[in-house]
Design a protein around this nucleic acid. Sequence first.
DNA 1: GTGATACGGAACGGTTCAGTTGCGGAACTA
DNA 2: TAGTTCCGCAACTGAACCGTTCCGTATCAC
Lengths: 217, 217
Amino acid sequence: MTISGGRAERTVEGGDRHGGRHLDASRDAALRDAALRLLAQIGYDRLTVDAIATSAGAGKATIYRRWSGKAELVVDALLSHKPHLEAPDTGSLRGDLRELALRASAHTGEPLDSSVMVGLASALPRDPDLRAAFEERLVEPHRRVLATVFERAVARGEIAPVANVDLVVSLIPALVLYRLLVQTQEIDPAFIQSIIEGVILPLVLAGPVSLQSTPTH
Amino acid sequence: MTISGGRAERTVEGGDRHGGRHLDASRDAALRDAALRLLAQIGYDRLTVDAIATSAGAGKATIYRRWSGKAELVVDALLSHKPHLEAPDTGSLRGDLRELALRASAHTGEPLDSSVMVGLASALPRDPDLRAAFEERLVEPHRRVLATVFERAVARGEIAPVANVDLVVSLIPALVLYRLLVQTQEIDPAFIQSIIEGVILPLVLAGPVSLQSTPTH
DNA sequence: GTGATACGGAACGGTTCAGTTGCGGAACTA
DNA sequence: TAGTTCCGCAACTGAACCGTTCCGTATCAC
C-alpha cells in the first residue's frame, strides 16, 4: 500500500515495483479530463465511476488502481486543473475587467470553470477535501486575478483604495453563480458588461462611502 | 386516476369517491414540511422518499397516494411554502435593508429559505418544474420585497431612481448564496451589514454612474 | 524467454433506493 | 352493519451503482 500522505499522487512515482508493466500516464489524464467534463455536465451527485471510466475509454479497475473512489478522483482532477492565472494589464481598470469578462464567457471547449462550479455546488458543504480543492483551484485563482487588477488600478491612481476588497472581488463570481444556478441563464458578454458598468465601476469609482446625513435612526 | 392538470393538488378535493375514509389533510402538511426540512438539511439529490416518510411519521404508500414521486412532492411543497411577503417600512432605506437583514439571519426553526436554496441548487438546471416553483416561491418574493423597498426610497427622494434595478436587487441573494455555497460560511448579521454598507448603499447613494473621463480606449 | 503488472472489458455480490403490494386497524358512506 | 378507502408498517421487486475479481492481451524488468 504505497499511498502517499496528503494528496493522491501515485502515477509515475517510480515506486518500489520490481517488474511488470508501468502505469500509463495517458490514462491518468484521460480519466481526470473525463471526470471534470462529466462533473460540469451532470454534477457531482449524479456522477458515477462507471460513467467516468466509459467516457475515458477505460475500465473501472484502471480507476481504482489509482484512486480510492469518486471523491478522491474528483479532488485530484480539480487539483490538476490549471486555470488562467495571469491578470490582464490593458492600462485601465475598465479594460482589464472587460478582458476578464471575455475570458469568462469564452467557451473554449474545455470544461468551463463556471460549469464545474455549478456541478460541485451541492457537494461542497459535506466534503471538506472537495471544498479545499475547489477553493484552491477555482475560487482563489479568480480572486487573486481580480485583486491584482484592482491593486494596479489603485497604483495608477485610477481609483481610491477599495475599503472592502474581498467583498468587491466576490461580487463578480457571486453574480455569475447566481445567474447560472438560480436564473439558469447564459453568461453572455452583455451580462458581464452590465456587472462591470452597473456595479463594479460605480462602486469603486465613487470612492469611500460618503455616508450622507441620513440619520441612522 | 383523478389527476388534476398542472399542479399536484388532490387533497380535500371533494372528488368522486363514494365511500371510505377521507385523505387526512394533516398528513399532507406533515409530508410537505418533512420534505422541505430534509431538503434544507441534505439537499435534493440525497433526499429519499423513505426518509421523508419516516421523518413525517408516515408510510411511503401515503406519499404515493398523493404525489407521483419525489419531484412532484418537492415542487408541491415549495408551492405551498409561504415566505415573508411584507416589505418593511421603517422610513429610511438603510433601516428597511437592516430589517430585511434581520429576517434573513433569523433562524426561526422553520426551514430557512437560504438552506432550501442551497439544497435545490444542483437540481435546478435539470428540472424545469422545480425551477419554476423555486422561482415563484423563493426568488420572486424576495425580489419583489427588495424592489418595493427601493421604490419607496425613490419616492421619498432618498435616492435617485436605480438604473438597473434587477441587477442591484439580485446582489443580496447572489452574495448570500455565494457565501453559503462557495465559502461555506454562516450568514451572520455582520455579513449582511457589510453588504448593505459596503455595496448596496454606496451604489444607490452615488446616483447614476458618473462615467469619468477615462477613455474607453 | 519468464514472471509480474497494467490494460479494457465483463461479470459478480452487496447496498441503496424507487415504487408496489399486503396486512391489520381505523374512519368514513350508505 | 357492510363495503370502501385511508392509515402506518413491513416486505418485496427491480434498477442503479459501488467496489472487486476475473479474463485475455499488452508491456515492462530481469
